[in-house]
């Protein structure tokens, strides 16, 4: 589902951060990208999401390829993104309901069709329940959320439009252990539901607790691991 082949990428005026990097994340699996700060983990994610052009090599998420069509955006609903800083990733003026429904609203604007108001509300309620926030009023402002709740809202937003793939950049580094375990379980649940999940972290034990495979970018031979619980 997510395919990276012989990728070279970096920033203007500097040597390549990533060179000759290859990765495959099949549908229904979770792959962890591991390595110390500065080894190029986030750079790979930026190329996969189309935020940074590749210098060479190919990248594809399902049928969309940012290397075939440089500068293009992923089709709506194809790719969900979860960032490192959940609070900064949510608009402080929006409610939880509007935030979670945003991918549905974007699709409706693009296609001039879509869900009725009631269906939209039901989809938001279902998605919030899925990320263990069923008790939360969708009218709650995003500023009233704890950091752990904010990350679960961000995951609900990433999942609501039924993406084929999710990429998450250090999704637990700002969270306490109990919030982090919830996020890890939600990402695993998404993979078990058929989504291709690519997660970046510098925490080996965390990745090996829920990923089907981890790739250490400092020593790029894939090491298999399997969640047991």
């Amino acid at each position: 589902m997510i395919r990276v082949d012989d990728l070279s990428a970096g920033y203007p005026g500097r040597p390549a951060v990533v060179d000759g990097f290859t990765l495959d994340v099949p549908a229904g699996t979770c792959v962890g990208l591991l390595g110390p700060s500065g080894c190029g983990k986030s750079t790979v994610l930026k190329v996969v999401t189309g935020q940074l052009p590749a210098r060479s090599g190919t990248v594809a998420v399902a049928s969309w390829s940012p290397t075939d069509r440089p500068g293009s955006r992923p089709p709506l609903g194809l790719l969900g993104v979860v960032s490192q800083d959940p609070v900064a990733s949510l608009d402080p003026l929006w409610t939880v309901g509007r935030t979670v429904a945003e991918p549905l609203d974007a699709r409706r604007r693009a296609t001039a069709g879509g869900l009725t108001r009631e269906e939209r509300q039901q989809a938001v309620a279902r998605q919030l329940a899925d990320v263990r926030l069923g008790h939360l009023d969708p009218a709650t402002r995003t500023t009233a959320l704890s950091v752990g709740q904010a990350q679960r809202v961000a995951i609900a937003r990433a999942l609501i439009a039924g993406p084929r793939a999710i990429v998450a950049d250090e999704p637990t580094s700002a969270l306490d252990p109990t919030s982090a375990s919830t996020v890890v379980r939600l990402l695993r649940q998404a993979a078990d539901g058929g989504v291709a999940v690519l997660v970046v972290s510098h925490h080996r034990a965390l990745l090996e607790s829920f990923c089907d495979a981890t790739v250490d970018m400092a020593h790029p031979a894939p090491a298999a691991s399997r969640p047991g619980g």
């Binding site: 375990s181 379980r185 925490h203 090996e208 399997r226």
Partner: peptide, 18 residues
């Protein structure tokens, strides 16, 4: 809190609620 710490090959336990 201790059960929610990640360990290789085992999903960390979930602590429901807030």
């Amino acid at each position: 809190l201790l059960r929610s710490l990640p360990r290789p090959g085992r999903l960390p336990d979930d602590l429901p609620g807030d």
